[in-house]
Design a protein around this nucleic acid. Structure first.
Length: 478
RNA sequence: CGGGGUAUAGCGCAGUUUGGCUAGCGCGCUUGAUUCGGGUUCAAGAGGUCGCAGGUUCAAAUCCUGUUACCCCGACCA
């Protein structure tokens, strides 16, 4: 009994206190540690390995769609930042400033990049001359700094890792095509690698990026019913081009402004994985993302032949999965819990009894299901299970999301749903920002997106009763 | 940034109200045995300027002032 209790007490349960559960998981799964700087976190090896897998998967997709990686400076002169009015207004409240170099005060202070639009624009204005220079399809992996007031590991930190794509095109149509192409890349990545289903759509005027003509987003739903903006893709039109004078000469020898896009995802995605798949035993990682896909736990490892067999199986499986043997001298039960906390998708137990029967025990992290598998079937069975787990996680998340997506026809219904059933709320909207503000004030929910897949839920706005324009996904967000 | 809470060993906590001997406990950690199919058992040991900075006092983990970090709820945001 005492033992059972100890196990349960490892982390706070999701139901009891979701926020505390989240903090417990990021710490106990050894994803992060807090640092001595407020709001900044240390990403530990296991957490960073997850980020590296995200990078690898995304970078492959970026390259496949013709993008090149570059690196911009981390400092932006104040004057440069201020060239685009909406942009600077959006970011000014949360930039960090460098005012001194050594002991000497700088004549112009430098902003630590909160995002790099202005740097890319300045560079583009120098390197783009002719229609032959277009399109420019650049991406950058880096960290940015935003001086936030409240912070949470992965979800909001002062410095965070991300990628930002910045492209320049000859026409508005091309820019729009690129904006949606990258949104689709994100959506496909989230579903197939992270096993997180997303709603694709457009942000409202109120919610769009500072300086953008249009912002598109993928929105996902966390286990507690809160929404998480998981990636954005912006079409800038020629707004930045006009502010930064990025012009090219077209085929008719006429000067034209370029059309630009930018798009990004961040380490926040790791937070999404935790909050979508995790459970009371800790993290649950989809196999495509997991740094370690299969952990082999020898039982009675001091007995002759056990460790040898474990290593033999490891060798055999390492062709198809990321696998390791946990041969530390801890008790098996301890190892089980530890790897469950870290979300390793599949566990293989091998002991004297198994060796005798020429079989092993496989245990799925997501379902807890135990499978007795003959050794000669392992090479086939393990990759199969990986695929199955990947698929099941996505399906489970999709079902959770659908189950927690509600429809509201009136504001009263809307308010009631927000209070009683956290999740997405689908409701019609007239397009007026006043209604958007009133909904936020009365319910705390914001417009997450105007989804591409529209549904007809009636002809009147949920707020004012005037003719409706769009069906909108609403929700409380992280 | 507003309201609430917390800070004592790696982790979880007691002690603080009412200042008083050398600051305790459980887990973990180290060493040696023992055990191994869900957090073994036993023995010996290491580890703390009580978040930080001031102040009051013969004496401060304990009282006072300031400050920082973390957690929760709001406002802002990837």
């Amino acid at each position: 009994m005492g033992k059972k209790e100890k196990m349960v007490q490892q982390i706070t349960s999701m139901q009891e206190d979701f926020a505390q559960w989240y903090t417990d998981v990021v710490k106990k799964a050894e994803l992060i540690d807090y640092s001595s700087v407020r709001g900044c976190m240390i990403i530990r090896p296991y957490g960073y390995a997850i980020w590296e897998n995200i990078q690898k998967e995304l970078d492959t997709r970026f390259k496949a769609t013709g993008h090149e990686n570059v690196y911009m400076p981390m400092f932006i002169p104040e004057g440069l930042l201020q060239k685009e009015k909406d942009h600077v207004e959006g970011f000014a409240p949360e930039v960090a400033w460098v005012t001194h170099g050594g002991e000497e005060k700088l004549t112009e202070r430098l902003c630590v990049r909160p995002t790099s639009e202005t740097l890319f624009c300045e560079h583009y204005s120098n390197v783009i001359q002719s229609y032959r220079d277009l399109p420019k399809l650049y991406n950058q992996w880096c960290s940015v700094v935003r001086w936030e007031k409240t912070t949470r590991p992965f979800l909001r930190t002062l410095e965070f890792l991300w990628q930002e794509g910045h492209t320049a095109h000859a026409t508005q149509e091309e820019a729009q095509e690129e904006t949606l192409r990258m949104l689709n890349v994100y959506a496909e990545f989230c579903e197939n690698v992270l096993a997180i289903p997303v709603i694709k759509g457009q942000k409202t005027e109120k919610e769009k990026f500072a300086g953008a003509m249009a912002t598109y987003t993928i929105e996902s739903l966390m286990h507690d019913g809160k929404a998480l903006q998981s990636g954005t893709s912006h079409n800038f039109g020629d707004g930045f081009a006009r502010a930064f004078d990025i012009q090219y000469t077209d085929q008719n020898n006429e000067l034209q402004y370029v059309y630009q896009t930018s798009w990004g995802v961040t380490t926040r995605l790791i937070g999404a994985v935790i909050m979508v798949h995790g459970d009371d035993s800790g993290l649950v990682l989809p196999p495509a993302l997991a740094p370690l896909q299969l952990v082999i736990i020898p039982i009675a490892q001091h007995k002759p032949g056990v460790l040898d067999k474990a290593y033999e199986i490891k060798e055999q499986l390492s062709k198809s999965v990321r696998v390791k043997v946990d041969d530390t001298d801890k008790m098996p039960g301890w190892k089980f819990s530890e790897h469950e906390m870290k979300g390793v998708p599949l566990r293989l137990e091998i002991g004297p009894k198994d060796i005798e029967k020429q079989q092993v025990v496989l245990v799925r992290r997501d379902t807890g299901e135990k499978l007795f598998v003959p050794m000669e079937e392992l090479e086939e069975k393990v990759p199969q299970l990986m695929e199955q787990i990947q698929k099941d996680l996505l399906e489970k998340a999709r079902q959770h999301r659908d189950k927690h997506t509600y429809i509201a026809h009136t504001l009263e219904e809307f308010e009631k749903t927000v209070v009683e059933k956290p999740g997405f709320i689908k409701a019609m909207w007239c397009g007026d920002v006043d209604c958007e503000n009133e909904i936020k004030e009365r319910t705390g929910a914001t417009a997450r997106c105007i989804p591409f897949e529209q549904e007809d839920l009636g002809s009147t706005c949920v707020c004012c009763g005037k003719p409706s324009k769009h069906m909108v996904y609403w929700g409380k967000a992280y």
